[in-house]
Design a protein around this nucleic acid. Structure first.
Lengths: 227, 227
DNA sequence: TCCAATATTAAAAAATTGTAAACAACAGGC
DNA sequence: GCCTGTTGTTTACAATTTTTTAATATTGGA
């Protein structure tokens, strides 16, 4: 069975087109999908749209600095765990420490060697839980993210898009409690505003279709998936 | 792997006593437990004995190089996921890339700034916690923040949100006395105003559920958790 | 001992979630 | 374009749980 794995997406923000180009070229060569931004605000916009797995931020950018972008993104549940690397010409201990303490995972000083950058990116990804590809199996439940199909005991269960995405999120880390906020950001997006009962209604529909007891409510906190 | 409450242990191997001392001093200051080795072989021995959470390896050492030590350790299941940082005077792209590809998580060139090293160590631990979730184990009590579950002797204890958060706070530093004020700020938040008896009531509920004597009252001061 | 701080209760208040039904937005076929 | 069925969202309310209060008892240290 051919099982495709969605390439990891990297967002890189720098005001120097040369850097964007050379880094982008090298990362693409490693098989990553790359999105580029020319400044901090654009980085935030594009991050919200594409939900990258890793973000490389130049510190000195017109508009918002890389640190500011990092702070803003880290406050959003969708980017709480996204890997962030700072890139800068400032070879200064205090700035580096500030970068790492702001929530950065790595701090690389220019002039950068593209090969070193790629190595560091790879090293950081190595730490991330390996995605099993687009097909996820939990108990007798099979979730195919690519085909948008869920089967339970070889019987297909038809889920609408939102239902599917919600289930896919909850099953991505079984037993982990997803906060309502986190769910909102990851399923509905960062700037969509929906009412409070919307999540419940979707949870209810999934429960109806899958049988009642696979999703547990943690009152005051969120929901978790358990077989 | 549940993360014990005992301080995180770091093994550092270098043949220069000065480096050992200064790095060791700084890491201890951050609350880490530090073990030092003078060469590669000693590093392997001590790693097997102490099972450190993180290992800092000088690349150039008499006997086995840091790379060799890394390779040997990585083959053992116990050290498959241990964080490894390389330390070296070689500021050379190819060596750095080799280090990262050998299984290193970070590569720091000398002369090192102790403060930067500490920052990088902290950043790596932060990342690991995000990936694996933080699970506290104290005696036969296990507190899983991610799953929102508390178990005592493998039996689940159901706690409401405030109860859970209060217990999580107290257990985060066993034996430390938390002032009532401190508890209010960290569990209820700075802007919430609740009466004085509220804390007592929650403490009581936790005591009921966990069995009476794990939370001690320090009259006039606050509460502390002890097994 | 006495007194302020804490424990214990039960009951009130507040917050959270479940549910059904109505409404809105949307997609596809004709 | 228009109809139609599906999907997504909101609303209002009930059911439930959690949190807080308040009133009373108890405790431990000056």
């Amino acid at each position: 069975m051919p099982h495709e794995t969605k390439p990891r997406t990297i967002l890189i923000a720098d005001d120097e087109p040369d850097i964007l180009e050379i880094v982008s070229f090298n990362l693409k060569g490693e098989g990553y999908e790359v999105i580029t931004a020319k400044n901090g605000n654009e980085a935030i916009e594009l991050a919200k749209i594409h939900n990258p797995d890793l973000i490389i931020l130049d510190v000195m950018m017109p508009g918002k600095t890389g640190f500011e972008v990092c702070k803003i993104l880290r406050m959003l549940p969708a980017f709480e765990n996204t890997i962030i690397i700072f890139l800068t010409a400032l070879n200064d201990d205090n700035t580096e420490i500030k970068g790492l303490e702001t929530g950065g995972d790595d701090y690389i000083t220019k002039p950068i060697s593209p090969r070193v950058l790629v190595s560091r990116v790879n090293a950081l990804f190595r730490r991330i839980i390996k995605e099993t590809g687009s097909v996820l199996q939990i108990g007798d439940l099979i979730i195919d993210r690519e085909k948008y199909i869920v089967t339970s005991n070889s019987e297909e269960i038809v889920l609408a898009r939102k239902e599917f995405e919600l289930l896919a999120l909850l099953t991505s880390k079984p037993s982990k409690v997803f906060l309502r906020n986190e769910i909102l950001h990851k399923v509905w997006g960062t700037d969509v505003i929906v009412g409070d009962r919307t999540i419940d209604v979707h949870i209810r529909k999934i429960r109806q279709k899958l049988g009642g007891d696979c999703i547990t409510t943690v009152k005051g906190v969120g929901y978790k998936f358990q077989m």
